[in-house]
Write a protein that binds this DNA or RNA. Structure first.
Lengths: 192, 192
DNA sequence: CGAAAATTTGATCGAAGTCAATCATTGTGG
DNA sequence: CCACAATGATTGACTTCGATCAAATTTTCG
């Protein structure tokens, strides 16, 4: 996967960028080729000042709640992911971020995001789009968590990500949906 | 309440703004003095392209879920509120926004937000701060909804807003917390 | 003051959690 | 390349928190 392909993906899924902006974006970011699944790219406690564009693969953000692994976020192809508290508030990360498949990521630091946003208005728009998209997804998730049954939440997830069960262990899907693995397993039984 | 006081509040709770920016912000926004509680300022179906800074009072965003009133958001003094889906995606609002006390609001349109963000870097920073603050609050709310008991959710709300029970009917607090009014009432009983 | 709205209290029910035991799949070392 | 340990998923029995339905009580306000 080349730099050009990655930029192409960003442009088709977000907005076109000027040549100058793209050149400087590549210069100020780093492509990570991660071959091992379950590679941890952010650890709890890190000052995680990097944001990652998933060019290929899947990643998840999770944290330990009373020692139990709770998935907070999945990022698939063309999504961005970061440790949201750490990135935006400059505090130690409560989250781990882990890659779940062989993946290609574009890594960019908060400082470089700021710098590019100041310099290129199209990058600033991209940046705002990513943040607003995240906010709207969270909004949707809040409604979902609050008023949907386990079954509805699972079906809705499948609607937006039909391939998720092939790519992500059920344990992570369960904790993401706020249900137990056992309940998820029962729900998946066709007799429901 | 004067324009100067409102601007002063914004500056102390967010960031200082240049004089030019403040002058133009006042010119491109409108102060609403709302004397009747329960005044609806955004209706379901509206293209709600306005954002409101609460200089004084309380407002809430709510929607009807199967005919039932569900509170999605409270905004108190120095908070911003808007119909998030409508404002950012330019679609008809699923939310109503209602004022719950005699209030003073500063109303600004999406177009004016864009314009001021382009023209004044300090306003752009303010705008980003508001969005990121919203995102982080939602993040916190997701964790809360997913793993806390009714009692914990209520206590946490009281910790950040001790005065909320004096200012907002319990029905709205209950639906905001994702619990029924009856459960909230039981939880509030000192024997818990 | 009295009607309407808000809140409390009580009794019952059900969705999903917990604990525990199996079953299935995967991947690694002999 | 198989065996078997480790991990992941399913199934079962039981429990619990909070929902629902219903009624009583308190508060608010014209």
């Amino acid at each position: 996967m080349t730099n050009e392909q990655i930029l192409q993906n960003i442009e088709t899924h977000y907005i076109p960028l000027t040549e100058a902006c793209k050149t400087e974006l590549i210069k100020s970011s780093k492509v990570l080729f991660i071959s091992d699944k379950d590679t941890i790219i952010v650890n709890e406690g890190d000052y995680a000042d990097k944001s990652y564009f998933i060019a290929k693969g899947v990643a998840r953000a999770y944290y330990l709640k009373d020692g139990k692994d709770v998935t907070d976020w999945f990022a698939f192809e063309n999504d961005f992911i970061c440790s949201i508290n750490s990135f935006f508030m400059d505090i130690p990360s409560p989250h781990y971020i882990e890659v779940l498949e062989e993946s290609v990521l574009l890594e960019i630091s908060r400082d470089n995001v700021s710098f590019l946003s100041e310099k290129y208005i199209d990058f600033d728009r991209l940046n705002k789009m990513v943040i607003i998209k995240t906010m709207l997804q969270q909004q949707h998730r809040i409604v979902s968590l609050q008023f949907e049954t386990a079954l509805q939440k699972y079906h809705n997830l499948l609607k937006t990500r039909p391939d998720i069960t092939q790519r992500v262990p059920l344990t992570h899907i369960a904790s993401y949906l706020g249900i137990t693995l056992e309940t998820l397993s029962r729900i998946r039984n066709p007799k429901y």
